[in-house]
Design a protein around this nucleic acid. Structure first.
Lengths: 330, 330
DNA sequence: CTGTTAGCGCCTTCAC
DNA sequence: GTGAAGGCGCTAACAG
């Protein structure tokens, strides 16, 4: 099924077929001919050959989405958002699970450079990021340091504000001894979370939250929570966690010490994964508009590709108070 | 950077470059020339243009992986496994989240048919599956009915055996009143689960497990569990769930009725998602080799593409007894 | 052993 | 308003 076949069946030339199917025929092809061509294409179930089109056009209409870990629900949702917008513009999105997490370090541009029009990188570690500086491809950064002027366009979450909301929520419940279960990951998003917590507690003239770092998994968070809750001195009444997975571990840690959540210890998460409502009690957390950031990221890349500017975006976050936080007990 | 540039720099012809870089030069190009070409390619940081190669070869070295939902951890892991094997063979994998879940059916082959060499379909509903029968592309089915002789090759999980292990585990703990919280999804994998449970209880001459269907989410499962536990007659002592998400909901349901897990009610899951160990108590569940099924699926597709037969595969499952199940109380 | 040639399917001038 | 021609970068035949 080539465009030549369609042309033959329609009794016109290949060029005419291209014009009609490319929707560039206004004022160049007669209405009647257009109908004939469309009929022929439908008849033959014609699909343009993408390889040929890419070769001719020098563009592939494909974006690469780089994520630290696809198994994390958040990134799966970012992908869904990006894919939706891409699809609406006849683009595809291919995933590149960055080796930072796991997996072998395939060269992101191994041979893909010629197969890709642009890159969207999400929540990348500072060093892994460097690999994308070159590549010469249009680049959009998601949930990453927007600080670099002249750097790539960014689409960000109001992470600092989100953490501030959590801290205020806890303070409002009367908590004064708050421990911070922090993700032991060196990315912009987590650095900001730590800073926001510190800033907010300082502003409220409350003792700084001791920071207990844990790898991003339940078991590590559990251990960190046990350390936090059995440290010398008065016991924290709240565990503010960098994300929902850590919060799940924190709940387990608290219970391992015979403490009830939220009666004896309040626990807060971040991300609003489906995990947050699978737990019992359900987690107080912050909803991240994951699909939305994916959509904005793809839109920004599309703008870049079209030579239009892509202004920085910052998406607001919403605190969702649920059952894992309660008023502090004296 | 075209192969022509490399040829010019190396002082040879384009064809020679192609032979060398395609590793097809043995006995056709001198060692010395090979070295020169390689040096030139390295110098210029040459990457072959994939679109041109695809056009010439009529193949794209790309497989389509069709999954019901990418946000489900299981499918993300299947993808990871498939991508790994694909990568080792110079193939790529693109995802197609089947609209079965949401949205109208975009044509899976909209324009992708020409951009894809084969399809791997995972856990597809019977009807959604039909759309892939045609397409004329090599097809491998994952976790789907292997019953069709002459049908596409399958890579399967020993789902029935896994459920049997769960049922025996519960029976061994003395449970005689078992309710089945079933996924309300019409796919092979879930039909088999239901049948296996029924068969195993029948074999043990234990009353059939009432089946409570629930959509595949925590809230629906919670409601189903509440129904199961407050149905007339003696209360079930165990809730056997079709998957971990349902089990999470079942635990919430039990607690909502003031029952403790596992002291008053045992709950079992299936899949061994990270959720299983995020919960407290940790779920007794069955581990699915998700990456492995993805790997085997890609291998089977590769075999098909090479004209080799792809024998059916069935992967064994492992029961993981954890804290959510305990001996039945009289 | 190496070079020349042709053509994959498409889109875009340019000429009619 | 329509057709003819060329070339994107690559590889497989075929010459030399």
């Amino acid at each position: 099924m080539t465009s030549r076949d369609v042309a033959r069946v329609a009794g016109v030339s290949q060029a005419t077929v291209s014009l009609v199917l490319g929707d560039k025929w206004r004022g160049r092809v007669s209405e009647r001919t257009v109908a004939v061509v469309r009929a022929a294409a439908g008849e033959l179930d014609y699909r343009p050959n993408l390889a040929a089109r890419s070769l001719r056009l020098g563009a592939t209409r494909t974006a690469l989405l780089v994520v630290p870990a696809l198994t994390h629900e958040y990134f799966a949702r970012v992908y869904a958002g990006a894919a939706k917008v891409a699809d609406e513009h006849g683009f595809g999105v291919v995933l590149y699970p960055s080796p930072a997490g796991i997996g072998p370090a395939r060269d992101p541009f191994g041979s893909a450079r010629t197969a890709i029009d642009g890159v969207i990188a999400s929540s990348m570690a500072a060093d892994a990021l460097a690999a994308f500086g070159d590549g010469g491809l249009p680049l959009v950064m998601l949930d990453s340091d927007p600080g670099v002027p002249g750097g790539p366009p960014t689409v960000n979450l109001a992470v600092a504000d989100g953490m501030r909301q959590v801290a205020r929520h806890l303070l409002g419940l009367g908590h004064r001894r708050i421990a911070h279960i922090a993700a032991d990951v060196d990315t912009w998003t987590f650095r900001v979370r730590t800073e926001a917590v510190a800033a907010e507690l300082a502003a409220a003239e409350v003792p700084a939250a001791p920071r207990h770092a844990a790898a991003l998994n339940v078991a590590a968070a559990r251990d960190a929570a046990v350390r936090a809750l059995s440290a010398p001195g008065p016991r924290p009444t709240a565990l503010l966690c960098d994300d929902d997975i850590l919060a799940a571990g924190a709940c387990k840690g608290a219970r391992a010490l015979g403490l009830r959540v939220p009666d004896d210890v309040s626990v807060s998460g971040f991300d609003d994964l489906s995990l947050a409502t699978a737990l019992d009690p359900e987690l107080t957390t912050v909803r991240l508009p994951a699909e939305s950031i994916g959509e904005h990221g793809m839109s920004a890349l599309l703008a870049l590709l079209a030579g239009r500017p892509a202004p920085p975006v910052e998406l607001p976050l919403t605190l969702l108070p649920r059952a894992s936080t309660a008023p502090a007990v004296a």
